[in-house]
Amino acid sequence: MSQIIDVAHLNYRYPQQSADDLTLKDISFSVAAGEWVAIVGHNGSGKSTLAKNLNGLLAPASGTITVDGEVLSEDTVWNIRKKIGMVFQNPDNQFVGATVADDVAFGLENQGVPRDEMLARVAAALKQVNMSDFATREPARLSGGQKQRVALAGMIAAQPQILILDEATSMLDPRGRAEVLQTIQAMKVAGNLTVLSITHDIDEAASANRVLVVNDGELKEEGTPAEIFRHGPELIKMGLDMPYAERLKAALKRQGVQVPADYLTEKGMADWLWQLSSNK
């Protein structure tokens, strides 16, 4: 698999910080094309700063970022932004257009896409997120989940290779969150999309191929969700919730039941419980 994102020794500090007080400290990782990577960490650990460094919204103090073979610099930044779609946290504050269709078209307008093609792509993108009936609605008349789906439709229309979700589901209710995640899964299946999701949401982290744990600006750990979820109660310190199966395991352990140390999915947990009771 080819590496689509390559980050080497990235350091970042905000202008008001002193030289030795870094927000991001020597971060190195790479992401393969088509991979879904979740970045987790508690509040203020530098996750969002990392995301903004990746498409040049913030300029790193040192280190290199390579996206799809291009090293991020002042000359390549606009080209790289074309490849990276970003969805932010607050659905209201990233809605640029006056209506749903206008917002979806905004990114295409910026790229100078001809109008005929734009119309087709906007319609197709709205259909994919199930918002076709809302094309002429104003943002004030949409719910949070709907606005976030419009933001996604904007990404679908712009056809980026990489999608960065900066806590894109954190202001949504469980249903809106599930809808958005399903849409992203469908996008991923449809094209060879790489997803980087910054999240506190356990389901979102669980659907990733790999989880990066950021703590105080440093990359603390990386592994599959199963490897990370094995930490059990420590997950809370990482800014994540415990998966339901882990919580059940912890509760059983307190009751004196011998539980397996490995992470089990809900289905795995159910299977294990069946085995446990049939052995008696």
Partner: peptide, 13 residues
Amino acid sequence: EDLATAMEARGYQ
């Protein structure tokens, strides 16, 4: 600020 960031991320020049 959020809006400007989102616009820039979407390629507004």
